[in-house]
């Protein structure tokens, strides 16, 4: 069976949980930016959590089904329609052959995840169906979906049931201002104490250019550097370092002005210093931030980061139990 793309939305891509293992070769992990939402959507329709679905950013696509299927939409809050009848989010919806799934204007969050029973069955590339558009890898010919694409759908497990839902208390979206917890890193000493304090005091705003590679923030005060003679091999700007590896979640601040948090499609290395890393528990949240959303960074230590990670894993387990 297949699903036909009537309207693609804006940069709607096939995503699963990504292709870890190639970052040292410059190929990013990729995969859904909001993994909890992607996993939840899959569970609702009876798929493996790592099955491929669609990630729609800011705007939903319109899809036509050629066969009966279960569908679930999680993540961003936007009105969901099947043939113009509004449907609940975070819930398995039965769609009949010939019906169309469509969306209204985004209400909150940024990315909706659409899972279809059986999962999208485009050919895997390096172990994943995730679309890495810049590298033309995965998904539909390595690109976002387009009008008249026919998305192949795998065989449904039969485990999903219409009406299954993730309880409200277990759904996650951003607050306002959104808070991103950050663990200061290797280059934290490169900025002055006043700048270290100011970074956490300031209210930042998501820049409109924020995307799957990185989320840029503006409106905070520029960071003041501790003076030093630039080491051999580093660029001349005080924010330059001798090239290093960029972890997922790392926060670089080119020129000391606008922090960028690297996300799923990030480059793997380069010559900008990183003041720290957003903790793994808060990375999903970044995928749900709209442009201009106010954001504060909150300083945490490793113990707090690990506790938050465990809490996040426990939340996912509660969703599995509630849906399964």
């Amino acid at each position: 069976m297949s699903v036909k793309v009537i309207k693609p939305g804006l940069l709607t891509t096939v995503q699963d949980l990504g292709r870890p293992g190639y970052f040292h070769l410059g190929i990013p992990m990729g995969g859904a930016m909001d993994r909890l939402a992607m996993r939840s959507a899959n569970l609702l329709v009876g798929n493996d959590e790592g099955a491929a679905g669609l990630e729609a950013v800011f705007m939903g696509p319109e899809l036509e089904f050629t066969q009966d299927a279960l569908v679930a939409v999680t993540g961003a809050d936007m009105p969901i329609f099947v043939d113009e009848v509004e449907q609940p989010g975070w819930t398995a919806i039965a769609v009949k052959a010939g019906q169309r799934l469509g969306f209204g204007f985004l209400r909150s969050g940024a990315r909706a995840y659409i899972a279809i029973s059986g999962g999208i069955d485009t050919p895997p590339a390096l172990g994943s169906r995730s679309t890495y558009a810049i590298g033309a890898l995965g998904g539909v010919e390595g690109r976002a979906i387009a009008v008249e694409d026919e998305l192949p759908i795998g065989r449904a497990s039969g485990k999903g049931r219409a009406g299954a839902s993730v309880p409200q208390a277990l759904r996650r979206g951003p607050g306002s201002p959104a808070e991103l917890r950050m663990l200061p890193g290797l280059y934290w000493h490169r900025i002055t104490e006043a700048a270290q304090k100011g970074f956490f005091e300031d209210e930042w705003a998501v820049a409109p250019e924020a995307d799957r590679m990185g989320y840029r923030f503006r409106n905070g005060r520029p960071l003041e550097f501790v003076e030093r003679e630039q080491p051999f091999g580093a660029g001349s700007d005080p924010s330059n370092i001798v090239d290093g590896c960029y972890p997922y979640g790392s926060v670089q601040v080119p020129g000391g002005t606008e922090p960028i948090v690297l996300h799923r499609d990030a480059v793997s290395g380069g010559g900008y210093f990183m003041i720290g890393t957003v903790i793994s528990a808060d990375m999903d949240l970044i995928g749900q931030l709209q442009p201009h959303t106010p954001v504060k960074f909150v300083k945490v230590d490793m113990d707090a980061a690990l506790a938050a990670r465990a809490e996040r894993a426990a939340l996912m387990q509660r969703i599995r139990e509630a849906v399964g």
Binding site: L10, F58, M59, F105, L106, A110, P208, Q290, P291, H292
Partner: peptide, 8 residues
């Protein structure tokens, strides 16, 4: 006429 997207 409504904006289909958030942005500038």
């Amino acid at each position: 006429i409504q904006s289909p997207l958030p942005g500038t």
